[in-house]
């Protein structure tokens, strides 16, 4: 699979109503995951990421996506997997989310490699196993074994929206430049 633009889809339907649908699968270390294709805007090659100091480790930083600044998460760090260097198969999956206020936001997630797009119906998806809460099971839509190996299906919106509202202990009320300026990320 090429690492260029793969799918440009708008998440215009609520995939949570039914889990049936197409999923983009990718790998993190030895594990395999899937996210609904409807959320995926595009897949880009790993590019230099500007780190943002004083943020949680799983927030890698920001990149310039054709003129728009988007945040990039490190899914390994997010899931507290062992850290490893990314090789040249590593990609950034750009997902589009619709926040609580109806604003579309793009965010990126670094994965080791993108695998394929699979069609899954409801029957092929098993509910998330109960680990007693230790892995972040609230992010997990379900598990499928129907396309070879175990793939964990993730609720990408939950993962990202979590990070869309990270709070940090900095003085409140300091005016933010970006808020005042009209062309925010979401206008693109």
């Amino acid at each position: 699979m090429s690492t260029t633009s793969l799918a440009v889809a708008t998440p215009n339907q609520n995939h949570q109503a039914s889990k049936t649908g197409r999923y983009l699968t990718f790998s993190l270390g030895n594990e395999s995951y899937g996210i609904p294709v409807l959320n995926v805007r595009e897949i880009i090659r790993l590019c230099p990421i500007t780190p943002v100091p004083k943020m949680p480790t799983h927030i890698k930083g920001v990149i310039n996506l054709r003129g728009t600044v988007i945040a990039v998460l490190d899914l390994r760090a997010k899931f507290q997997l062992s850290q490893a260097d990314y090789n040249d198969r590593a990609c950034i999956i750009v997902v589009q989310l619709i926040g609580a206020n109806g604003v579309k936001t793009n965010m990126g997630a670094i994965v080791d490699a993108v695998e394929e797009v699979v069609n899954l119906n409801e029957a092929a998806i098993e509910p998330a196993p109960d680990f007693g809460g230790s892995p972040n099971s609230e992010y997990i839509l379900g598990v499928t074994t129907s396309v070879g190996g175990v793939k964990t299906l993730l609720d990408i919106e939950k993962i990202f929206l979590d990070d869309a509202s990270i709070t940090r202990s900095l003085p409140e009320g300091a005016p933010k430049l970006a808020d005042a300026q009209p062309n925010s990320v979401t206008t693109h």
Partner: peptide
């Protein structure tokens, strides 16, 4: 100037 987006909304640095 570009907005950093929702992720960094709560930081003021």
């Amino acid at each position: 100037i570009k907005s950093l987006g929702e992720t960094f909304k709560h930081q003021s640095l």
